[in-house]
């Protein structure tokens, strides 16, 4: 097995172990806690400060979160491209620097455009 595969095998083992840990503790809790009493229907309502919930289960929410999520995707992809560049900058030298500055400036222009369009305003 190569070192690369082996190191990610460790990550997978740790992921599995975290699920196992939660499973064991939840099992322990199941033994220790009293059974959930469901004879009182009020108890299983959503807790909204003591007032009975009005309307459907899932309320509608603002579109603004979606707009920010789209902006986020753009900049997160940018970050993915900057990572390998940052590691190898010494090798690329001035050429790499100028290339990346152009890339960053284009994205900054995008941010400025979104700013001017009022996307970044929380309304």
């Amino acid at each position: 097995m190569s070192d690369l595969v082996r190191s990610y095998l460790t990550v997978a083992i740790f992921g599995a172990a975290s699920i196992g840990l939660v499973g064991i503790t939840l099992g322990l809790a199941r033994i220790l806690r009293p059974p959930t009493r469901t004879d009182n229907k009020q108890k299983l309502l959503a807790y909204e400060s003591g007032v009975d919930p009005v309307g459907g289960d899932w309320a509608q929410s603002q579109i603004r979160y979606y707009v920010f999520a789209v902006l986020f995707v753009i900049f997160d992809v940018e970050a993915v491209f900057i990572f390998p560049w940052a590691v190898r900058l010494e090798v690329y030298g001035v050429f790499g620097l100028i290339e990346m500055l152009i890339f960053i400036v284009i994205l900054l222009l995008g941010l400025v455009y979104a700013w001017r369009k009022g996307v970044l305003r929380w309304v």
């Binding site: 809790a29 220790l32 806690r33 959930t36 299983l44 959503a46």
Partner: peptide, 12 residues
């Protein structure tokens, strides 16, 4: 916390 009831709301 281990001894508390595990309540799942009806609509969840």
């Amino acid at each position: 916390f281990l001894q508390k009831e595990d309540i799942h709301p009806d609509n969840a």
